[in-house]
Amino acid sequence: MFSSHDYLTDAIMARLTETRVTDPECAWRAAQARHRRRCLVPSGKLNILAADHPARRVTKVGDNPIAMADRQDYLGRIVRVLSSDGIDGLMATMDLLEDLFILDACIRDAGGTSLLDGKVLIGSLNRGGLAGTSWELDDPITGPTPATCSAWRLDGAKLLLRIADEEPGSLKTMLASAQAINECNALRLPMFLEPLPVTRKDSGWSVVKERAALARIAGVASALGDSSRYLWLKLPYCEGYETVARSTSLPILLLGGESAGNPAPFLGELASAMQAGPNVRGALVGRNVLYPGDEDPLAMACAVGGIIHQSWTVDQALESLPANRGRGLDLLSRYF
């Protein structure tokens, strides 16, 4: 089993904090020095890791209500996934991106190869709709602005837009989303929009994973802002995903939702979605890659990348897991 604390050690975390204290501009310098890919999508497809959940007070994985609150474990898993050639990049909040920029600077200073050069880095904009609050669907931009993403030389921005017919907060979030899309368009910055139809369930909100509801919301999302030319949609899987794919000409990335606890269910959904239409172009997934049960996150990232970039079947993806399990576990120990 992958041990994140053996991979990203206490000493590395201590150095990360020490750098934040003694050299707060380190992350900024590393961001300016990073070599970006010339084209966002060289292969026409993307496999992006999502890591913005804790900022919205979402920390539960399986039976552990605060699994993602352990920053050392969370960051270790993120670095492990980013070391995979099958992953194109990361979508995260600024604090996590800055952690990674500092680690990358340390690796460079030690003569190592950058983890972030050539990766797609996307800033998560709106995290103010904290899970479980009375204002949860009024989700203002409390993270970076599009201008900030551009200044940090990020490759895109991401927005979450949850719509419940009975909640006025949804309209406020939609207006904020349209404005952010306009700002991204002016900067020629790709926007990854996650529009979700939701309904009240128990004390929280549940995503309606039904093809008609997703197709309708895709139509709304595609028309937001002054142009859709830099817009990507992030949508969950459902039965009859062909209907969802046909609802827009925009590129679609599949989201994962809560961790299934093992690789097979999500790999099956991804393989099915990739066959649903030519505009389904990959995945923007977090928990199902970072917490794949007892599996190594790197092995899971490689399996997902195989389906997206090499058109693997589910069986091929599952068969690839042993070969990548435990590979390159000395990546960080070589430089720290």
Results as ranks from 00 to 15, higher is better:
Gln275Phe: 00
Leu329Ile: 10
Trp205Leu: 05
Leu332Met: 15
Asp85Ile: 05
Thr113Ile: 09
Ala50Trp: 03
Thr113Phe: 03
Leu255Phe: 04
Thr145Leu: 14
Thr17Val: 08
Cys238Glu: 04
Leu8Lys: 07
Ala50Arg: 01
Gly111Thr: 12
Glu136Met: 13
Ala147Glu: 14
Asp138Ala: 14
Tyr241Pro: 00
Tyr291Val: 10
Tyr230Ala: 11
Ser124Asn: 08
Gly143Gln: 05
Gln179Leu: 14
Ala151Met: 02
Ala147Tyr: 03
Pro263Ser: 06
Val244Gln: 02
Glu18Asn: 08
Pro65Ile: 10
Asp138Ser: 12
Thr248Arg: 00
Val244Leu: 05
Asp138Leu: 05
Glu98Phe: 07
Arg153Ile: 08
Leu160Lys: 08
Gly112Trp: 12
Glu239Ser: 12
Pro278Ala: 09
Val280Gly: 13
Gly225Glu: 12
Phe101Ala: 15
Asn47His: 09
Arg325Pro: 01
Lys209Gln: 13
Gly305Leu: 07
Leu321Tyr: 08
Asp52Thr: 00
Leu233Tyr: 01
Leu116Ala: 06
Asn126Leu: 03
Ala164Gly: 02
Arg34Gln: 14
Ala223Ser: 14
Val208Gly: 01
Pro265Lys: 01
Gly256Lys: 05
Leu284Gln: 08
Ile107Val: 08
Pro197His: 04
Asp315Met: 07
Thr313Glu: 15
Glu258Thr: 05
Glu166Asn: 13
Ser83Asp: 15
Arg77Pro: 06
Met300Asn: 12
Thr22Ile: 12
Ile78Met: 10
Gly293Ile: 04
Thr133Cys: 05
Glu183Ser: 00
Leu196Thr: 02
Ser150Arg: 06
Ala69Glu: 03
Arg325Met: 13
Tyr291Asp: 15
Ser249His: 10
Leu16Ser: 05
Lys209Cys: 15
Gly143Met: 03
Leu46Pro: 00
Val79Glu: 06
Asp23Glu: 10
Pro42Met: 11
Thr113Tyr: 00
Ser134Leu: 15
Ile12Gln: 13
Gly305Met: 07
Trp28Lys: 10
Asp6Val: 10
Glu319Ser: 11
Gly132Pro: 03
Val61His: 02
Val208Met: 07
Gly282Lys: 13
Gly62Tyr: 02
Thr243Gln: 11
Ala260Glu: 14
Arg127Ile: 01
Tyr7Asn: 05
Ala51Asp: 06
Gln32Tyr: 01
Leu196Arg: 03
Leu49Met: 04
Pro297Arg: 04
Tyr7Gln: 08
Ser222Asp: 09
